[in-house]
Amino acid sequence: MPRWLYLPALIGFAFLFLPIVALVVRADWSAAPRAIVSPAALSALWLSVECGLAATALCLVVGVPLALMLARHDSPVIRFVRALVTLPLVLPPLVGGIALLYLLGRNGLAGQYLTLWFGITIPFSTVAVVLAEGFVAMPFLVISVEGALRTAGTRYETVAATLGAGRWTVFRRITLPLVLPGLASGTVLSLSRALGEFGATALFAGNRYGVTRTMPLAIYTAFNGSGEDQDAAIALSLLLVVVAIVFLVLIRGWRPEAGR
């Protein structure tokens, strides 16, 4: 490594790390515990956890089969599908929220029939939060699992078939265990992405206390809202930082297992 490259490297690190330091320094540590256990904060925290877990479950149930389909087939159609699957990654979440609104909103492409036939209205409900989070989080899971599936290859599955195992047995006993490390890191990535989701949620689900106000929305409300104090926002932010660090450690913890 050329020596002079260390300077931009350190600037890059400082750029990523110093904001967190500023947050920690600025925090009112005596008031933080009280801010975190306030009813508004607890409500946002639990809503975030519930919706995050639900969105992750949604990603697993449909994302793993989707990853399998993408990994085990190769055709122009599949390549096109793969490109579309990664679209939410590069799309601004706000755009995602608007798109969801125009699909599932009261007058949306599908939403109008949900309202008309079943009396179901999705926008600005907790379900909308889960869908918005799932929309932005699923690509992380699909990409991670698809990569693991491609690395694992089909040779073990072939051997399992010659031993008399049907497709479902092969999937359950060979395919899934082999991609477990990728599945685990994909799950953690999806969950952390879901917990931090703001843009799509704000547009598609709104900011209703106790119904759709998750942690990021609560922080935004506390920071910008009328008469609320910034200390609560900072305390909640620190809580999210801690949650993120826990997840990072979890992902790292999986890495050594992946080599075995």
């Binding site: 051997v159 078939a161 010659t162 031993l163 008399g164 060979i174 477990l180 075995r260």
Partner: peptide, 19 residues
């Protein structure tokens, strides 16, 4: 299909299920 054939296959790589 391979799983119905009752034809065993053993190759150069033992391909034991690593888990």
């Amino acid at each position: 299909s391979p799983e119905q054939r009752r034809v065993g296959l053993m190759g150069q790589d033992p391909l034991l299920f690593p888990h």
